[in-house]
């Protein structure tokens, strides 16, 4: 008897994981579709290099999807994959000691083309030229301020206020006590407020 299954787009993460475990290739693709942007955004804002962020995102997905059998359903899939991505970013930052990075492109880029290719691309929304200038100025300033935060503050603030994750989930993702996560987020907001003060004047 043919088994009727709900469309993947309407299924929960857990249902999709179960279908991936049963060998349904489309389920793997759906997990990539759901998480490629949040994971890539987090990694890009952590390492500030498009090519590197893409490599780390690829590493994250390959690791997660090849270990889908070991995923424990009592945790949220999003927490699990963000944890793998954050580990990849932190490992990279530790290796390279790239705690503060250039906003205008990869610090390893040597030619103008390479700088352009690795620079932060903001705004694939429809914007007027004025909007674009304003958004670039504001977005650029806050992106620069985020880049200057300590990596652990950066992870916390991005997960909380850009990805909209709950404090408890962030504590789970980063394996930190809840109080530490709150402290990091408060400190990060303070640093951002100070860094953006010149825009208000």
């Amino acid at each position: 008897m043919a088994e009727s299954r709900p469309p993947l787009a309407a299924a929960t993460d857990l249902e999709i994981v179960a279908r991936a475990r049963a060998g349904e290739e489309a389920a793997y693709r759906e997990l990539i579709r759901r998480y490629e942007r949040p994971i890539f955004s987090l990694l890009f804002r952590m390492v500030r290099d498009r090519e590197l962020a893409e490599d780390l995102a690829q590493e994250t997905f390959v690791k997660a999807l090849n270990a889908i059998e070991s995923y424990r359903p009592e945790f949220k899939f999003s927490s699990w994959i963000f944890k793998i991505a954050n580990n990849a970013a932190i490992d990279h930052l530790r290796r390279r000691e790239l705690d503060t990075l250039s906003l205008d492109g990869s610090p390893h880029a040597e030619t103008p083309e390479a700088i352009e290719a690795t620079a932060l691309q903001i705004g694939d929304r429809q914007e007027t030229p004025l909007d674009a200038v304003e958004s670039k100025e504001l977005g650029g300033a806050i992106e620069a301020a985020i880049a200057r935060l300590r990596p652990e503050y950066r992870s916390c603030i991005l997960l909380r206020h850009v990805e909209g994750r709950a404090y408890e989930e962030i504590a789970d993702i980063l394996s930190l006590p809840l109080g530490t996560v709150k402290t990091y987020i408060h400190r990060a907001r303070n640093e951002l407020r100070v860094a953006l003060a010149h825009l208000r004047e």
């Binding site: 955004s41 893409e54 977005g139």
Partner: peptide
């Protein structure tokens, strides 16, 4: 917080 929330998602 509003500025952070307004940051666009980035695509690979």
């Amino acid at each position: 917080v509003d500025q952070l929330a307004a940051l666009p998602p980035l695509a690979p």
